[in-house]
Amino acid sequence: MAGEAILLAAQSARALAESARRAGLRPYVADLFGDADTLDLAEGYRPLPGRFGTGRLGGSALIGALDALAGLAGPRCLGVVLGSGLEGAPDLMAEIARRHRLLGAAPGTVAALKDPMGFAALCGRLGIPHPAVTLGPLDDPAGWLLKRAGGSGGSHIRAATRGRAPAGAYFQARVPGRAFGLAVLADGRSIAVVALTEQWSAGSALRPHRYAGALERGRAEAPALPGAILAAATDAVDRLAAATGLRGLASADLLSDGERWWLTEINPRPGATLDILDRRGGSLLLAHVAASAGERVTPGPTPVDAAAAEICYGARDYRPVPRIAWPDHARDRPRAGTDVARDAPLCTLLATGRDAAAVREMLRERAARLHALLDQEETDEHECEVSERQRADGAAG
């Protein structure tokens, strides 16, 4: 497959593009952001309209972007990989599949897994613990959350309100526990576990459940979940994959308090943990392609070091983003001169270390240094502009 082209579309497709380059592929990319490192990685690029977290990436413009990129890619093209942003639009996925070879879950599979009421019913039939869901009306909303069907990234999750859920949304019962992700490769019949990740949020006033980051523990560390819970969750995802024909790289979101566990949803696509999981020797993106074709793929062993990726959100408005020397551990780097609003994704920070605690501490330090660097550069640019205005006005420099 070396040298072949691949089409990539997601809200942010940089991680997919970087994985494609590691695999020796030529990425042709469509996404919302057009970050500097995405453009450096891409053989061809098309921007998409849309709003982050809605689950309806690009609309009909996505079809045009993929058609244009396919023309640039030429005949040696493996197909198209869709990342986050299509969960709420299986009809759009079906149209893409009619025009291009779709590498990943089929539109019908996505529709089955991302329909909240249907998925809850399927979990019930299979005996899989899943929080209760309803469209309402709710008399007492205290024990419930409001979620958008097909939403991603946690930004769409709110406290429930009285009455019925708005169109396109649903209520899910609150359950206790920490968040985990089970990354798997599915071949339409069964799964192979890639990794268990620990996940956390960085809430804001408007988005209290906003996704922040994920971590994979090192090989020598104690497991993040008891073995019995991990085995039960793995069996549940295996049965769901067989029931829905799931193929490709996917992840299951879990909540557990250490004694009980609940499967909250399955994301039938490569996700936000790709940065920390694609370090197993063989290419995880090529494994995704193979699994999409129905091949049974066995991931490589867990790496020795722990690894984590965390979204760094804007501490304030950057209008525009100043020109800085971005550190090597920063990804999704916004182009200088573009705007990033407060609380919007600014970049992604990566870290590896001997264990989970060391990696989390490294992320905190790197985030603090990055914000200081941005603040200093913006101060320097402002002082330079003031000095230039003074000279233009004839004042002392």
Results as ranks from 00 to 15, higher is better:
D257W: 00
I229W: 05
G88R: 10
A2S: 14
R162L: 10
I266M: 05
C347H: 02
L274T: 00
A167V: 12
A293I: 13
A120I: 12
A214D: 09
P223D: 06
A121C: 13
A2V: 13
P268S: 06
E259V: 14
L66V: 10
R98D: 15
L349D: 04
G258F: 12
A173Q: 14
P47V: 00
A112S: 11
A367E: 11
T54P: 01
F171D: 04
A220P: 10
H288C: 02
A186N: 03
G53W: 05
A368C: 04
L103Q: 07
G227R: 11
G397Y: 12
L206S: 14
Q390E: 14
L103S: 09
A272R: 03
A121M: 12
Y313R: 00
A192D: 05
L215F: 07
P49Y: 01
Y313Q: 02
Q11G: 14
R174K: 08
A10D: 08
A202I: 14
S251G: 14
A68G: 10
A165Q: 08
P268N: 03
P226W: 07
H329A: 02
S190Y: 02
G71E: 13
P107M: 06
E43H: 09
A97I: 02
A290Y: 08
M1Q: 13
L254V: 03
S201C: 15
L182F: 02
L135S: 15
R247G: 00
R331H: 13
P303M: 10
A106L: 07
G74W: 00
F33P: 10
A169E: 15
I266Q: 07
G188I: 08
A243W: 03
Y45L: 04
A220C: 02
T264A: 04
D393A: 14
A97G: 06
P116T: 00
A392Y: 15
A231K: 00
W262H: 10
R101G: 04
S12P: 12
P322G: 11
L374V: 04
S251L: 12
L246Q: 01
A272D: 01
D91M: 01
E310T: 14
L86P: 02
